[in-house]
């Protein structure tokens, strides 16, 4: 199973690099943010894979924090783009 997990992890990393092209090419800013969010999701799964392969439970905590940060970063970047400031009203 170890080699299978390595295969899945490498496959996901190749996918993430393909997404990196969209993140750099755009054409709009939202495209870049979306691509970075997708790369973040893939990284999260890769972290869980590494946690199982190496038997380090600590990596799962890192994956949790990574997922939460990924969510917050994307929403904040969208809001910054929309309103031009970070603190906004509820409308």
């Amino acid at each position: 199973m170890q080699s299978f997990f390595w295969g899945v992890g490498i496959f996901l990393l190749v996918n993430a690099f393909a997404c990196l092209w969209r993140a750099s090419a755009g054409p709009t800013v939202v495209d870049c943010i979306l691509a970075v969010n997708i790369i973040g999701t893939k990284t999260l799964v890769v972290l869980v894979l590494l946690a199982l392969v190496f038997g380090r439970a600590m990596l799962l905590d890192i994956a949790l924090v990574y997922g939460l940060l990924n969510f917050v970063i994307t929403v904040t970047a969208g809001r910054l783009l929309e309103t031009g400031r970070l603190a906004g009203d509820q409308s």
Partner: peptide, 13 residues
């Protein structure tokens, strides 16, 4: 979180 980020970005766009 995935649908929510989708909403947030689509709304910003």
């Amino acid at each position: 979180s995935s649908p929510t980020t989708g909403h947030a970005l689509a709304r910003a766009a």
